[in-house]
Simulated assay, not measured.
Amino acid sequence: MSITPLPEQKKALRSRLLRARRAVPPDQRQELAARAHGHLLVSRVWREARAVALYVSLPDELDTAPLLDAAWHAGKTLYLPRVRQQYGLMDFVAVHNRDELRSGPFNLLEPLDSLPGFGPEQAGGDFCPDLFVVPGVGFDRQGRRLGFGGGYYDRFLSGVRQAAADTPPSLVGLCYACQLLDALPAEAWDERMTHICTDEEWLCL
Protein backbone atom coordinates (compact mmCIF):
# COMPACT_ATOMS: atom_id res chain seq x y z
CA MET A 1 0.00 0.00 0.00
CA SER A 2 1.55 3.31 -1.11
CA ILE A 3 1.62 6.33 1.19
CA THR A 4 1.27 9.74 -0.38
CA PRO A 5 4.40 11.82 0.37
CA LEU A 6 3.83 14.72 2.76
CA PRO A 7 4.58 17.46 0.19
CA GLU A 8 1.93 15.99 -2.13
CA GLN A 9 -0.58 15.77 0.73
CA LYS A 10 0.02 19.44 1.50
CA LYS A 11 -0.28 20.42 -2.16
CA ALA A 12 -3.64 18.65 -2.49
CA LEU A 13 -4.95 20.17 0.75
CA ARG A 14 -3.74 23.61 -0.32
CA SER A 15 -5.72 23.37 -3.57
CA ARG A 16 -8.81 22.15 -1.74
CA LEU A 17 -8.70 24.87 0.92
CA LEU A 18 -8.02 27.66 -1.56
CA ARG A 19 -11.07 26.54 -3.53
CA ALA A 20 -13.12 26.61 -0.34
CA ARG A 21 -11.89 30.10 0.50
CA ARG A 22 -12.65 31.42 -2.97
CA ALA A 23 -16.12 29.88 -2.75
CA VAL A 24 -17.12 32.04 0.24
CA PRO A 25 -19.95 34.18 -1.22
CA PRO A 26 -18.78 37.79 -1.71
CA ASP A 27 -21.96 39.14 -0.12
CA GLN A 28 -21.20 37.18 3.08
CA ARG A 29 -17.51 37.99 3.47
CA GLN A 30 -17.95 41.25 5.36
CA GLU A 31 -20.35 39.68 7.86
CA LEU A 32 -18.15 36.62 8.40
CA ALA A 33 -15.06 38.77 8.85
CA ALA A 34 -16.89 40.93 11.40
CA ARG A 35 -17.77 37.81 13.41
CA ALA A 36 -14.14 36.71 13.46
CA HIS A 37 -12.99 40.21 14.40
CA GLY A 38 -15.47 40.15 17.26
CA HIS A 39 -13.88 36.99 18.70
CA LEU A 40 -10.39 38.43 18.44
CA LEU A 41 -11.06 41.97 19.66
CA VAL A 42 -12.65 40.83 22.94
CA SER A 43 -9.94 38.26 23.64
CA ARG A 44 -7.41 38.75 26.40
CA VAL A 45 -4.47 38.37 24.00
CA TRP A 46 -5.71 41.32 21.93
CA ARG A 47 -6.81 43.53 24.82
CA GLU A 48 -3.53 43.10 26.70
CA ALA A 49 -1.25 43.40 23.65
CA ARG A 50 0.68 46.65 23.42
CA ALA A 51 2.29 45.69 20.11
CA VAL A 52 0.58 43.59 17.42
CA ALA A 53 2.04 42.03 14.26
CA LEU A 54 -0.68 41.79 11.61
CA TYR A 55 -0.85 41.50 7.82
CA VAL A 56 -2.72 43.09 4.92
CA SER A 57 -5.16 40.51 3.59
CA LEU A 58 -5.44 39.29 0.01
CA PRO A 59 -8.80 39.89 -1.73
CA ASP A 60 -10.15 36.40 -0.97
CA GLU A 61 -8.71 36.18 2.55
CA LEU A 62 -10.69 37.11 5.62
CA ASP A 63 -10.40 40.91 5.64
CA THR A 64 -7.91 42.38 8.11
CA ALA A 65 -8.46 46.09 7.33
CA PRO A 66 -10.74 46.62 10.37
CA LEU A 67 -8.10 45.01 12.59
CA LEU A 68 -5.47 47.46 11.38
CA ASP A 69 -7.84 50.31 12.19
CA ALA A 70 -8.64 48.83 15.60
CA ALA A 71 -4.95 48.57 16.47
CA TRP A 72 -4.24 52.16 15.43
CA HIS A 73 -7.34 53.45 17.22
CA ALA A 74 -6.34 51.66 20.44
CA GLY A 75 -2.85 53.15 20.31
CA LYS A 76 -1.12 49.79 19.82
CA THR A 77 2.17 49.57 17.95
CA LEU A 78 1.26 47.88 14.66
CA TYR A 79 3.80 45.85 12.69
CA LEU A 80 3.21 44.67 9.11
CA PRO A 81 5.37 42.31 7.01
CA ARG A 82 7.71 43.33 4.19
CA VAL A 83 9.46 40.63 2.17
CA ARG A 84 13.20 40.76 1.62
CA GLN A 85 14.94 40.27 -1.71
CA GLN A 86 16.06 36.84 -0.48
CA TYR A 87 13.28 34.34 -1.16
CA GLY A 88 11.51 33.09 1.95
CA LEU A 89 12.64 35.91 4.24
CA MET A 90 10.74 38.92 5.54
CA ASP A 91 10.85 41.68 8.13
CA PHE A 92 8.14 43.33 10.21
CA VAL A 93 7.86 47.11 10.12
CA ALA A 94 6.08 49.51 12.48
CA VAL A 95 3.40 51.32 10.46
CA HIS A 96 1.39 54.29 11.73
CA ASN A 97 -1.14 54.76 8.91
CA ARG A 98 -1.99 53.63 5.39
CA ASP A 99 0.13 56.39 3.85
CA GLU A 100 3.14 54.33 4.93
CA LEU A 101 2.14 51.42 2.66
CA ARG A 102 2.97 50.74 -0.99
CA SER A 103 2.30 47.94 -3.48
CA GLY A 104 4.75 45.07 -3.15
CA PRO A 105 5.27 41.47 -4.34
CA PHE A 106 2.36 39.00 -4.41
CA ASN A 107 -0.09 41.92 -4.95
CA LEU A 108 0.20 42.84 -1.28
CA LEU A 109 0.43 46.24 0.35
CA GLU A 110 3.71 46.51 2.24
CA PRO A 111 5.47 49.10 4.41
CA LEU A 112 7.55 51.69 2.57
CA ASP A 113 11.18 50.76 1.93
CA SER A 114 12.32 53.83 3.87
CA LEU A 115 10.88 52.49 7.14
CA PRO A 116 13.17 50.38 9.37
CA GLY A 117 12.31 46.70 9.57
CA PHE A 118 12.97 44.02 12.15
CA GLY A 119 13.95 40.44 11.48
CA PRO A 120 13.31 37.49 13.80
CA GLU A 121 16.84 37.76 15.16
CA GLN A 122 15.85 41.10 16.74
CA ALA A 123 12.85 39.71 18.64
CA GLY A 124 12.93 40.41 22.33
CA GLY A 125 14.84 43.68 21.95
CA ASP A 126 13.38 46.71 20.23
CA PHE A 127 11.02 44.38 18.38
CA CYS A 128 8.71 42.65 20.84
CA PRO A 129 5.13 42.11 19.60
CA ASP A 130 2.88 40.56 22.20
CA LEU A 131 0.68 39.10 19.48
CA PHE A 132 1.10 37.82 15.93
CA VAL A 133 -2.06 37.43 13.84
CA VAL A 134 -1.03 34.94 11.16
CA PRO A 135 -2.52 34.20 7.73
CA GLY A 136 -2.84 30.69 6.37
CA VAL A 137 -4.40 28.60 3.66
CA GLY A 138 -5.66 26.35 6.43
CA PHE A 139 -5.33 25.50 10.13
CA ASP A 140 -6.29 22.57 12.33
CA ARG A 141 -7.58 22.18 15.87
CA GLN A 142 -4.12 21.43 17.24
CA GLY A 143 -2.76 24.75 15.94
CA ARG A 144 -1.03 23.39 12.87
CA ARG A 145 -0.87 25.80 9.92
CA LEU A 146 -0.78 25.24 6.17
CA GLY A 147 0.72 28.21 4.32
CA PHE A 148 1.38 28.88 0.66
CA GLY A 149 4.59 26.86 0.74
CA GLY A 150 7.16 29.66 0.76
CA GLY A 151 8.07 29.20 4.41
CA TYR A 152 8.07 32.93 5.20
CA TYR A 153 6.11 32.69 8.43
CA ASP A 154 7.62 29.41 9.60
CA ARG A 155 11.15 30.83 9.29
CA PHE A 156 10.21 34.10 10.96
CA LEU A 157 8.22 32.59 13.82
CA SER A 158 10.89 29.98 14.47
CA GLY A 159 13.40 32.79 14.92
CA VAL A 160 11.01 34.70 17.18
CA ARG A 161 10.39 31.61 19.31
CA GLN A 162 14.12 31.15 19.86
CA ALA A 163 14.94 34.83 20.39
CA ALA A 164 11.99 35.51 22.71
CA ALA A 165 11.95 32.19 24.54
CA ASP A 166 11.33 33.82 27.93
CA THR A 167 8.35 35.89 26.74
CA PRO A 168 6.90 34.13 23.68
CA PRO A 169 4.16 36.03 21.85
CA SER A 170 0.67 34.69 21.26
CA LEU A 171 0.17 33.32 17.72
CA VAL A 172 -3.37 33.60 16.35
CA GLY A 173 -4.28 31.85 13.13
CA LEU A 174 -7.03 33.83 11.37
CA CYS A 175 -9.28 32.26 8.74
CA TYR A 176 -12.81 31.44 7.61
CA ALA A 177 -14.45 28.46 9.30
CA CYS A 178 -14.21 26.50 6.03
CA GLN A 179 -10.41 26.65 6.35
CA LEU A 180 -10.30 24.94 9.75
CA LEU A 181 -9.80 21.17 9.64
CA ASP A 182 -9.63 18.54 12.36
CA ALA A 183 -6.06 17.64 11.41
CA LEU A 184 -3.37 18.73 8.97
CA PRO A 185 -0.15 16.97 8.00
CA ALA A 186 2.83 18.68 9.61
CA GLU A 187 6.60 18.71 9.36
CA ALA A 188 9.15 19.36 12.09
CA TRP A 189 9.65 23.00 11.10
CA ASP A 190 5.94 23.89 10.95
CA GLU A 191 5.18 26.44 13.66
CA ARG A 192 2.01 25.92 15.71
CA MET A 193 -0.47 28.58 16.69
CA THR A 194 -1.50 29.24 20.28
CA HIS A 195 -5.02 30.30 19.20
CA ILE A 196 -7.31 29.92 16.17
CA CYS A 197 -9.88 32.56 15.24
CA THR A 198 -12.65 31.97 12.70
CA ASP A 199 -16.08 33.43 12.07
CA GLU A 200 -17.50 30.56 14.15
CA GLU A 201 -14.94 29.83 16.86
CA TRP A 202 -12.18 31.11 19.13
CA LEU A 203 -9.83 28.29 20.14
CA CYS A 204 -7.20 28.49 22.89
CA LEU A 205 -4.68 25.73 22.34
Rank of each mutant, 00 (worst) to 15 (best):
Q30L: 07
Q86L: 11
P120R: 08
G159T: 03
R21A: 08
Q85N: 07
G38H: 10
G75H: 04
V42E: 14
L205Q: 02
Q122L: 14
E100H: 06
C175F: 00
L203G: 08
V160N: 10
A65M: 13
W189S: 13
D182L: 07
I3E: 09
L203P: 00
D154N: 15
R144M: 04
K10M: 08
V83M: 15
C197W: 00
E61I: 05
R35C: 11
S158D: 13
L62N: 00
D99R: 15
K10Y: 06
R102L: 10
A20V: 01
L80W: 02
A71E: 04
L171I: 12
R16P: 00
L54A: 11
A51Y: 01
V133S: 07
Y176R: 05
E110I: 01
Y153I: 14
L89I: 02
L205V: 00
G136I: 08
T167M: 10
P5Q: 09
R19W: 01
M193K: 02
E200P: 05
P116G: 10
V56G: 03
D190Q: 03
A188L: 12
P7R: 08
D69T: 06
L6G: 04
L101E: 06
L17D: 02
A36H: 06
L181N: 01
L32R: 15
Y153D: 04
H195I: 03
E121G: 06
R161N: 04
L62Y: 01
D126C: 12
S158W: 04
G119S: 08
L80Q: 06
W202H: 04
R161P: 01
Y176N: 08
A165D: 09
D190G: 13
A94D: 09
D199S: 10
K11L: 13
F127Q: 11
A186M: 07
G147C: 13
A49P: 03
R22W: 03
L108K: 07
I196Y: 07
F92A: 06
G143Y: 10
V133D: 09
R14E: 11
P59H: 12
I196H: 03
E121P: 00
R141F: 02
W46Q: 09
